[in-house]
Nucleic acid binder design. Structure first.
Lengths: 257, 257
DNA sequence: TTTCATTGCGTCATGATGACACAATGTAAA
DNA sequence: TTTACATTGTGTCATCATGACGCAATGAAA
């Protein structure tokens, strides 16, 4: 049994290799088909889904632990990553939940099992370019796929709460973090950028006013090309002027939205 | 020796009563004499100062642990508290630092001493009404006093980094959190409110434009009284219209500052 | 009584914003 | 081939928000 070996290995290694009581969970956002997406793992025994997560090496910086999870799950090695909240309710991860799973795995439940202790988890959100990611399930899961942010299935434990907090953070930080840059491909159209803003802000924006304001920041380069193969008029492609973009982000893009 | 008893008690109790590897540190802000202030503890052996902190009970929510620290140090039992960042560098709290201190305390350094493990700390910032606080030093310290935010002394470990991050967070959240309400007394003047904004934003604001904009939000009640005993013209007193204030804060006060 | 820093209230030019019009483009239907 | 139509590029206009600044009233100190 492949899965059982993985679990046994984790249980054996965990007690000595990882910090006790602490974990990281990652909310990985992407943007595709004009929709904000999130990557979720199918739980091996349940109908529910889960955020990818992991533990922290005894000598590992916590950000490095999150990066490691991200790299293992996406194959990418440069990822925009932000810590956003710690979830530390003592009953967020009930013992029973894990005991049930381990029994189904055929694992002996010994007293003081490392993984059955209380865990405080540090939430990270990651922004990735959708087309560059090939989701890789972890050793305990078979399925790891993108979900439309508006159609997320039932999640295990408090993962729904973690996801919601990540979304709220994304919204608050939209004008202070390079969110557009990290979610969109190198070249993108104005309607795509607008849709990204509309999705994150959950608000319709006027097409013409949006363009005027964004262009006013002078953070975009309009390319010679237009986007081909679309129905209707082919829109111009843009790229970020990284230097000006970063300067503007640090000041905070001054929005009234 | 009072201190040594406290330390021994902590060391004995710690291993079983607290979550391993995790602590909380609190940046307590106040506002007085038109200056932003922060409460700091004098380290018992060093010339440096420290943020008040504590550990998390094995069945205690992490926010409750921060509240407990806050209540013990300030005597207040209703405090505005926000988690803002986790500091998880494996060398943020070097073993040597604590070993030196414990030796000076005359404590035997045994192998695997609970407090000498690596600690990840969760940073909280608190906003308190200056006049209501009577700072209470912890059992290891003699001095716990307010420092002007511009005149903070040398801090131990990475506490300067924690303080700076708290300040940066305060700045980012000024328009989305009830920061004015929690730092100012019930009744305050317009120049006081302005000075608070100027201090947090680290920017001079035009007196007349500030007043126009703040009043425009309709979140303030102008009282009949004026502030007495001040040199020069006595300014009006204001209080927050809590209902409107909270609504406005949730939307985010729309500032161009 | 005078001085002067401070407060309360206001003006004005400029720029930003929201609402909307119209022509150009490119695919799909007629 | 022509027509219909959704979509994009560009511009207008009234209104509102903002930054810069003027001036009189107040009240403690000189």
């Amino acid at each position: 049994m492949e899965i059982n070996e993985s679990i046994s290995a984790l249980l054996n290694a965990g007690e000595h290799n990882f910090l006790p009581s602490l974990s990281v969970d990652c909310v990985i956002f992407g943007f595709h088909d004009n929709q904000l997406k999130v990557l979720l793992l199918k739980h091996r025994h349940r109908k529910k889904w889960a955020l990818p997560g992991g533990f922290i090496g005894v000598d590992e910086p916590i950000d490095a632990a999150a990066y490691r999870v991200l790299m293992e799950r996406t194959g990418l090695n440069e990822i925009f990553l932000q810590q956003f909240h710690v979830f530390g309710d003592p009953v967020r991860s009930p013992r029973d939940f894990h005991i049930q799973d381990l029994k189904k795995d055929g694992i002996d439940i010994v007293e003081n099992l490392w993984i059955l202790q209380r865990f405080v988890t540090i939430g990270y959100y990651a922004l990735v370019e959708f087309s560059k990611v090939s989701p890789i399930p972890d050793t305990l899961s078979e399925t790891f796929i993108w979900w439309d942010i508006h159609k997320v299935p039932l999640l295990v434990l408090d993962h729904r709460k973690i996801l919601d907090k990540a979304l709220a953070t994304l919204r608050l930080q939209l004008h202070n973090q390079p969110i557009g840059y990290n979610l969109l491909p190198e070249k993108f159209t104005m309607p795509e950028l607008q849709k990204l803003y509309e999705t994150i802000l959950d608000k319709k924006l006027d097409r013409r006013n949006f363009q005027r304001k964004i262009l006013g920041f002078q953070i975009l380069n309009r390319l010679e090309e237009t986007k081909k193969g679309v129905p209707h008029k082919s829109p111009f492609l843009y790229s970020f002027d990284l230097k000006k973009y970063n300067e503007a982000i640090n000041e905070g893009l001054n929005f009234g939205w």
